[in-house]
Design a binder for these strands. Structure first.
Lengths: 224, 224
DNA sequence: TCAAGAACTGAACAACTATTCAGGGGGACT
DNA sequence: AGTCCCCCTGAATAGTTGTTCAGTTCTTGA
């Protein structure tokens, strides 16, 4: 064997892989999943089309990893926000608000990750990502139930329903179209958070208080 | 002019058109939208592939009409159920329950109509259908608000969120998988209806009562 | 029965992109 | 320097389906 991978080469390979993923992410953020085509992504990443296949076995794998990456970021943000909250109900409110703010800050990308038609099969990846995020929400609901703040319920189903409500109302085709305006955006986040909290059984008055608390820190994320 | 369309011919043409649409619907119910391909649909409808194009300008038009047809049926069912209810809150509960029962009774078809990736552009049709159904729900929420049963709110956003919650939790990829069992199915319908009613501000205790009332008549639909 | 024209057939076509692969180029070790 | 082999290139390939159209069959009214 006369050839060994130098540290430098290993770094370059990793950088290329990241570049390709980043290119895919940018393409998706700009033009949705439909824009994530091998040739254009390769151009963005400054490699040839064939090179993409040295890093990802197929387009399905590329997109699956993109979905996983974005979802990982979102999950981390949710955990961070919820863990910083003073109690279980606040944590739930913070989690919901974080989801809302996140999808709104990159609507096109979120739509692509969540639901946009793709010509290859990425259901497994989407399913796994959603399961993780829904699981996180479910455990936050569960914590609030155990603390006696919420009535007992099917937390998994509730978490799924909450995510569906958030996604549909904020990035779905019927979402309001003037969310560029920061004030309206905050209104929307507040409204859906309120709906979500009431859905799992938080009293109206208390829910309104939690919403205000949760939206204040999350607001800063919108700009980011 | 020696040829004129006889009444008989007109009827046959209409029948064929219906047959093609029905074939498309059956295909979608069996294998999702991916199964709605021109050649297989033509075989089902007992015509040649080219004939489909004498009735629908393109595959997009065929699927768009399929979506419109299914949604029309659902909207009618919602109106029927809601109009039969004794009051605005009951009407809202009935509407929500009807949506739930409908999508559950044909999950695969519902998934295809609502969200499954299609290789042609049917966003316009999907958008229009959803807008109509969301509008109906919104007006039911509005009626309950005007009757003083619910707090004032953005009814359009609330309706969209409710539909998102229902769809995601009942036909989405995270939906429970044992809904073939009628008892579990009823549980799921009750649970999501309860969530939906609480979300728009119905008190927990009152919501539970409404759910029971709404699910009883709707149950019969599950068998249909 | 026959002319005219509509309706239907189904094989061929077209377009789009993911994927492949033969060949060029450049580090890595002796 | 020399040799090896990995990485990269990008034009060619391949597979999938919606769509077309020249030819055939059927229907109508005289």
């Amino acid at each position: 064997m006369v050839y060994r991978r130098t540290h430098q080469v290993v770094k370059r390979l990793a950088a290329r892989r990241s570049a390709i993923l980043a290119a895919a992410r940018d393409a998706a953020a700009e033009g949705g999943m439909a824009a994530v085509q091998i040739a254009p992504v390769a151009v963005r990443a400054n490699v040839a089309a064939g090179t993409v296949y040295r890093y990802f076995p197929s387009k399905a794998d590329l997109i699956s990893e993109l979905i996983a990456e974005v979802s990982r970021d979102e999950l981390a943000a949710i955990r961070r926000a919820a863990d910083a909250a003073p109690g279980p109900s606040s944590a739930l409110a913070a989690a919901v608000t974080t989801v809302a703010v996140h999808v709104l800050s990159q609507r096109r990308l979120a739509w692509g990750i969540l639901a946009e038609p793709v010509d290859v099969d990425v259901t497994a990846s989407r399913l796994a990502s959603r399961r993780e995020i829904a699981g996180e929400i479910a455990s936050r609901i569960d914590a609030a139930v155990r603390a006696g703040h919420l009535p007992a319920q099917d937390t998994a189903l509730a978490a799924t329903a909450l995510l569906g409500a958030l996604h549909e109302s904020l990035v779905g085709p019927l979402a309001p179209d003037n969310l560029e305006d920061p004030a309206r955006l905050r209104d929307a986040v507040q409204t859906v958070t309120l709906l979500a909290l009431r859905a799992v059984g938080v009293m109206d008055a208390r829910a309104r208080g939690l919403v205000v608390q949760a939206v204040l820190p999350a607001k800063t994320l919108v700009g980011a």
